[in-house]
Nucleic acid binder design. Structure first.
Lengths: 230, 230
DNA sequence: CTGGAAAAACAGTCTCGCTTGTTTCTTTTT
DNA sequence: AAAAAGAAACAAGCGAGACTGTTTTTCCAG
């Protein structure tokens, strides 16, 4: 809830009340929390959800178990906090990838770059971890509750990003939603599905196919190709 | 390896050597093994991979822990055997769903029924469990080894089934593979992805869209709609 | 300003419960 | 009688969280 992100380390003077807004102690506390949550994510990535222990996280973070238990009284609270932290990281990651698309790209090329950005996001360790947590959440009510909250929030944010990326199409109503769903499901399927052979070629071909379909969805003239079922 | 599937329970007489091929004791042993592996799958479904304990499986199977350890000397061996068992169940499940499609359905209607069958398969508990195991396998080498083996085998089998279902199209080479990949990735994406709101409507719309695209892929006349990138 | 009490951050140890796998014993089948 | 199946008690390891002690920061009385 109180999201005091990463703090700047202005630790030199002890008495200078320049940053009197937030006390030094609170800054230090926030830094430790961040270190611990980052460590937890690394542990998730390395060993998976089921093999996570508080001792490993503490070691990875470079703090004692006692210190960690001070910040996160129970394992559950640690995981909860880490999920929220991960959620923020994911949002930032996606946003960064979208922002990185050069503005000179326009039209179809820009949209294609958007697809590639999304693919990069989906194949990143952060998303893999997120997906793993979702799977674990199926049999863990409290985890699921946390995830559901951030999921809705995230989908909204992605929709915002996409409205910006595909500004030409936002007023297309149903078609816009259809295009977003096709993209989401198809690419997530490739990202989380069981690889099988020749993964790279198949993905490349799918991306081309998908790009074509998106352009097709928004072609006005031939409406028949979009929905025979209406 | 030695796959003595489910055995028929002809337990009445003790001295009748009608089924002298396989001894009664071996039958009993196989039955107990099956009971235990089924119980393990139920435990996977109910509590997930990370919460599985040998004690729970034994209770669920209605045998003592000692008896279970007699058949499966370690937890690892239990899981290995269960994964193979699950793999067989999955194959059977998919085959049964495909076989259930009435032969009177032909052409597009038959293909659409094939999609629905696949969707049923993907949303069944068995597949959910399988996917969960795949996720867990990421950080568990020996589990991954088992899964990889059955994965390749499974994909081959599904391809066989599909050649039967879509016999009109098997000689289309690339397009057939493309169609299968689109189907696989899109539907798996819907099945394992994070639900989000209005799941049912979105899935229904996707299924219609997918069905149309498949028909489109195999339309000969207008080749331009299939691949602009060539 | 400043000494010191209060509070927060941090560290290490201990215990309890859970899970696994071994061992020993009884029952059933051959 | 021998071998296999099944049952139960036992030992060992591990992880979570409680507990106790130490250091650092804050804040206020003097």
């Amino acid at each position: 809830m109180d999201n005091r992100g990463s703090v700047s380390t202005s630790k030199s003077g002890s008495k200078e009340t320049a940053d009197s807004e937030i006390s030094w102690q609170a800054q230090k506390s926030a830094m430790t929390r961040d270190r611990i949550m980052s460590a937890a994510i690394r542990c998730f990535i390395e060993e998976g959800y089921s093999n996570l222990t508080t001792a490993k996280v503490a070691t990875e973070a470079g703090v004692s178990r006692g210190a960690m238990l001070h910040h996160f009284p129970s394992k559950t609270e640690l995981i909860s906090a880490t999920v929220e932290y991960l959620h923020d990281q994911l949002l930032e990651d996606y946003t960064r990838r979208v922002r990185k698309i050069p503005t000179r790209l326009q039209g179809a090329a820009r949209r294609r770059a958007g697809l590639d950005a999304y693919w990069g996001y989906l194949t990143d360790d952060l998303f893999i971890t997120y997906h793993e947590l979702c799977v674990a959440g199926r049999t863990n009510p409290e985890l699921q509750a946390i995830l559901e909250e951030s999921q809705a929030q995230f989908e909204t944010h992605v929709a915002e990003c996409n409205k910006e990326l595909f500004s030409e199409w936002v007023d297309r109503g149903d078609r816009f939603l259809l295009a977003m769903d096709v993209t989401k499901f198809l690419m997530e399927g490739m990202a989380v599905g069981q690889p099988g052979g020749k993964q790279k070629e198949r993905v490349a071909r799918m991306m081309d196919y998908l790009a074509d379909r998106l352009e097709e969805i928004f072609e006005d003239e031939n409406s028949s190709a979009i929905s025979r079922h209406s």
